[in-house]
Design a protein around this nucleic acid. Sequence first.
DNA 1: TCCACATTTCGATGATAATAGAAACGTCCA
DNA 2: TGGACGTTTCTATTATCATCGAAATGTGGA
Lengths: 229, 229
Amino acid sequence: MSLNRNVSSIASLISDPSRAAILLHLLDGRCHPAGDLAAAAGITPQTASFHLAKMAELGIVTVEKHGRHRYYRIAKASDAEMIEQLLSFAGPVPVISLRQSDQMKKLRHARMCYDHLAGEAAVRIAESLQRAGHLQKDGLQLHVTASGERFFADLGLDLPQLRKKRRAFSRCCLDWTEREHHLAGALGQGLTELMFAMDWFRREEQSRAVRITQEGMQGMAERFGIQLD
Amino acid sequence: MSLNRNVSSIASLISDPSRAAILLHLLDGRCHPAGDLAAAAGITPQTASFHLAKMAELGIVTVEKHGRHRYYRIAKASDAEMIEQLLSFAGPVPVISLRQSDQMKKLRHARMCYDHLAGEAAVRIAESLQRAGHLQKDGLQLHVTASGERFFADLGLDLPQLRKKRRAFSRCCLDWTEREHHLAGALGQGLTELMFAMDWFRREEQSRAVRITQEGMQGMAERFGIQLD
DNA sequence: TCCACATTTCGATGATAATAGAAACGTCCA
DNA sequence: TGGACGTTTCTATTATCATCGAAATGTGGA
């Protein structure tokens, strides 16, 4: 239940390190049980529960009960993008350890931004689609052109179905590692889903990072004209 | 002195209502004495001083001593834009009351975003420049085309000089009232300065709002092909 | 030289909120 | 049916921090 979501209340949500850690963990778009989030933030389950209740009250997260677990996830894609943007404000994250920089490298390469792809791969895809004239930027919208309609249909996407969803159809999302836009909205989600179905990408366990498969490399080259290494 | 600017510290800066009020007041890009900022936030000078010291330590604001006054301003344009963006997170600006406050209407129409123009007028200008082929969007950059070079030179802007500045030359800035991009960077600042010099716009006292003059109307129509009312 | 004024520093206070212990609740499993 | 487990609620503790009064600093003007 979204209450009084003014600037201060949103900011104070993220200003607490424990909550920031929880939100960061939830940014992978997956559902997470409360206990996992507590562990991720390094706090007791009670405290995590306290924070999650506060977030739920603001409508940032939603709960799903399954057995004795309660699975939390970020409620709206737009909020996930908001948090992503806040990350970009923090500036270049200082590298602490080699292990961390390795993980960071992976994240920069390809990761989930809630329900759609982000990172270098996603930015390159968005660029390619615009260069080919399939998408056209208009403010924060990304219009699908006539050639784009054919392209996505050919790829196997049901655009009329995606348009029906009660959310923005096709829009830009600022990538905090690349500092460029990638594709978000129903189309971004649908395309990401499709690419996973085609096994172009595979999710890593316990992480937002995404791995590109051999099929993915090939497909990206053939379909989008992108050479990733 | 930019110290450890992580997400939490940035967010906690804005999470406090008093600090938020101060920052909002500083968003006009002008210098403000500490006392004014205290009054604007409704706190005592001591408390304002406390907050300002904290912001200065994070490198968000800088001080300039003039006589017995200390003038504060936002240190970097990029930080001002960050705060502008945080405002847009407050949600799809809900209609607060039937009669929108007069001030709000003015702000939506035209206002300062730190050192460049924002609001409907600014978005329309940016659109116009792209439509005419003077600017070309590329990610978050706005490239000046060959025709753009001529256009701006003709207008009276010294582009080589603007390029020399140690900041982004020409880039997009998200307008939180229009939810579209307007022109920022050295070019946005230079163009705004020029338009003020030509008396197209005039600043309102004690506000970020900007008034368009008769000359401005005429100039906008002739130069940019924009009809503002 | 003295006073007014803008601002900061110091010190104290009071409110807020993050935290974890204890206990309760509900679910799964043996 | 009983116990383990994940989670929440309740409660107390603790630390933090925004705030302001008092005093200090520094500047300008008379």
